[in-house]
Write a protein that binds this DNA or RNA. Structure first.
Ligand SMILES: [Mn+2]
Ligand SMILES: [Mn+2]
Ligand SMILES: [Zn+2]
Ligand SMILES: [Zn+2]
Lengths: 136, 136
DNA sequence: AGCACACACGCAACAATGTTGCATTAAAAA
DNA sequence: TTTTTAATGCAACATTGTTGCGTGTGTGCT
C-alpha cells in the first residue's frame, strides 16, 4: 500500500502533507506519537498534524494505540477499516524502557465478560514490559 | 478504612490536605482524575495535589486506572499494596458516555501470552462502553 | 511542653500537549 | 479554466504536568 493508494481508498484529498505523514507510518512498524511524526517532517505545522491524525483516525487509516503511557499514539490499520468501523482487535505492547509501542496482531483481547448492566463496546489489552531489544 | 488509618498504614505524615484527598476517594467507588478531586477541595493547590497523588501512588494507597481516555485517573487500592508492590490485577471499565471509570475487581487480565523476545511485566485490560446508568 | 529536623505546602515560572477561529492556499469538480 | 470545497498555516488560548525555592507544619526526641 502506498500513501496515495491509502488516501484514494478512504476518499481523502491527496495533499503533500498527508502523503508525508502516511509515508512515515509505512516506514515504521510501530505506533507513533504526535511528536514522533512531527520530528520527522521538516517545517511541520503542529496544528495541521493534529487535524491530519484526527482525520486519518476517523476515516479508518490509523487507530489509537492505547498503551498506558501518557502519550497518545497511532498505528496504521492493518485491514479494512473505514469511516464506519475499526477492526483493530489486537493487543498492544509497550516497552517501559524505550517507550516504543507495537501492535501485537496475533494476540486478541479475551472474550468479553460483561459486568451486569454494563454494555461493552470495545476492549483493550495492553502488555507492559521490555521489548526484544531492551530486554537484553 | 479511614483516611488516618490509611496514612498510618503506609507510613505517611497526616496532613489536612492528604486526609481531604483520601476522604474524597473513600466516598467514591470509581477512579478519579486530578480534576475530579481538585474540584471537590475548596482552595486546592494544583501542584500539591499532583505531588500528593504521586506520593499516594508510590506508597501503594492508590493505583493508576488506565482507561484509554486522555485523562489519567487513580483509584484506591483494594488490598495490601505498599511501596514495594502493587497488586491491582483487575480490569477497568470506561464509560464512553459519562467518562466515568470503574475498577472491575472480579475480572482479571488473561494469562500472559508472551510475544517472542519480549518480557511482559504487567498487563492492562480495559473495557470501553456504557455504564449501567448511561446504557438506558 | 519545647526544640529541631525532615518533609509537605504554596507560589512562581516554565514546558508540553491540545483546541478553536479565521484568512489563505490548494485540490477537486464543473 | 473557473468555481467550489476542503486543507493548511498562523495566532491566540486552554489544559495538563514539572521544577525550584522559601515558608509552614508534623513528628520524634529531649
Ligand atoms: Mn494496533
Ligand atoms: Mn483499579
Ligand atoms: Zn524497548
Ligand atoms: Zn456512564
Amino acid at each position: 500500500m502506498s500513501p496515495i493508494e491509502l488516501l484514494n481508498t478512504h476518499h481523502l484529498r491527496k495533499t503533500q502533507f498527508r502523503e508525508k505523514v502516511l509515508d512515515i507510518f509505512l516506514r515504521h512498524d510501530r505506533a507513533l506519537s504526535h511528536r514522533d511524526i512531527e520530528s520527522q517532517i521538516s517545517e511541520a505545522d503542529r496544528i495541521t498534524l493534529y487535524r491530519t491524525l484526527r482525520t486519518f483516525e476517523e476515516k479508518g487509516l490509523i487507530h489509537k494505540a492505547i498503551d498506558g503511557s501518557d502519550k497518545l499514539k497511532y498505528a496504521l490499520c492493518a485491514g479494512h477499516c473505514d469511516v464506519h468501523a475499526h477492526h483493530d482487535h489486537h493487543a498492544h505492547f509497550h516497552c517501559a524502557s524505550c517507550g516504543q509501542t507495537f501492535c501485537i496482531d496475533e494476540v486478541q483481547p479475551p472474550g468479553i465478560q460483561t459486568p451486569p448492566g454494563f454494555v461493552v463496546e470495545s476492549t483493550h489489552l495492553i502488555f507492559n514490559g521490555r521489548c526484544a531489544l531492551c530486554a537484553n
